[in-house]
Amino acid sequence: MKRYGIIGGTFDPIHYAHLYIAYEAKKQLDLDEVIFMPAGNPPHKDGKCITDASLRYDMVNLAIQDYNEFSISSYEIEKNGLSFTYQTLEHLKSKDRELFFITGADCLIDIEKWENVSKILSLCNLVVFTRGGINNDELIKQEKYIQKKYEVDITVLKLNQLEISSTDIRKRIKDKERIDFFVPNSVVNFIEKNELYRED
């Protein structure tokens, strides 16, 4: 059975921390491949202005082109309506695939607010990475609670903290500051060519 990691997000834009998380997940969990899943119309960002899905897809595709262990899926972009995680996992699940859903610690804290959480946890192994702003004691408490309530195992990745955010990158572009410390050059060039993030 093949082991597939799935890392979703708006990737608006994708940056080096996303690539690092995917790489460490592949290495630590002995995954065959990590699939990047750019969100089409995520319910938690409903009403917020995000960059056109096709542009975000192209940026992810450029960012992962030098990594044979990474691939990209357009499923959430091409489907109609909101993008719910349980539907994505149902789409990807098959008899010869074991799925590992890679998400931030903030999502673990809020996971019971997600649509059909029991289905999500039945379809995948949940893999969590820590990020700034999350209380470690709160995370450990929530991890134990979810594992006991839903009878699942949760894996917490051991990572170096890279404090890079898409929000900060967008602000730096608007302020005419360099972003090549945080974003692959191919993506920097794409952003400049398409004049992205220059205005709110």
Rank of each mutant, 00 (worst) to 15 (best):
M1N: 06
G9P: 08
G9C: 11
F11K: 05
P13N: 09
A17M: 13
Y20M: 07
I21D: 00
Y23R: 15
Y23K: 14
V34D: 01
P38E: 05
P38S: 04
A39N: 05
G40D: 09
H44Q: 06
D46A: 13
C49K: 09
S54P: 01
A63S: 13
Y67V: 01
F70K: 05
S71T: 11
I72F: 07
I72G: 07
S74Q: 14
I77S: 02
L82R: 03
T85L: 04
E90T: 14
K95D: 15
E98H: 10
G104H: 02
G104T: 07
L108Y: 00
E112A: 03
V117D: 14
I120S: 10
L126V: 05
V127G: 02
T130W: 11
I134L: 07
N135Y: 01
L139H: 06
K141D: 05
K141Y: 04
Y145S: 12
Q147D: 08
E151M: 14
V152H: 03
D153I: 09
K158T: 07
K158W: 08
N160P: 15
Q161D: 10
L162E: 00
E163P: 06
S166V: 09
R170N: 06
K176Q: 07
V187S: 08
K193Q: 15
N194F: 11
L196P: 03
Y197W: 05
Y197G: 02
